[in-house]
Amino acid sequence: MHLLLIEDDQEAAAWLSKGLQSMGHVVDHAPDGEDGLHLALTGDYDVLIVDRMLPKRDGLSIIRMLRADGDLTPALVLSALGEVDDRVQGLRAGGDDYLVKPYAFEELLARLEVLTRRHKEQAPATQLKAADLVLDLTTHKVTRAGKTIRLQPKELQLLEYLMRHQDQIVTRNMLLEHVWDLHFDPQTNVVDTQISRLRGKIDKDFDKPLLHTIRGRGYRLSENE
């Protein structure tokens, strides 16, 4: 992926670039808002990583300018520990996702992955498929190998999110945000219990497990290990 990182903290930017490059991405770095806007307007990027507080021009205004210009490149907003309101502002300005510092690098990676996929996948599907697991988006019916699986509404939402991000790692925070609309870290592993419950319904009676736990990172719904 070709990424633009707009971040004024040189050290953080250096580490982040290094990390992203080691994951096979190409990273351009802009140290202030004006540079960032210039690069974003002239370059062709898959995802923009934009710090909110920047010298010369703040991050949200960069995104606003781009959106006004018709540029829909997905943008991930980074911010120092934010109030709930900041998150809303960030998303309203046209940001596609919002990550509060300090964040885990895994979290950033997972979200970047999701953003690029989301950007590409434009046609709305009526059916989601993972191996023999099928989720019908119109009837909300779930079957695996032809057998109907009964899911409660939240389980359905959880499964839908996982299936939409098939083969990607999704973190606990991503699930909390998108399935339960909760923007804080519970102290307990409450997400894990929800995953095991879902796993009990879609994997337990079948040979090949689809829902995998990736230690220290999150979960992945995938045909492959």
């Binding site: 709930v84 609309d181 909760l182 923007h183 804080f184 519970p186 102290q187 307990t188 409450v190």
Partner: peptide
């Protein structure tokens, strides 16, 4: 505020747990 109230309930439940 939905987030704060959710967090309160979460904290209370986790304490009990």
């Amino acid at each position: 505020n939905r987030q704060l109230l959710a967090q309160s309930i979460s904290n209370l439940l986790e304490n009990a747990h």
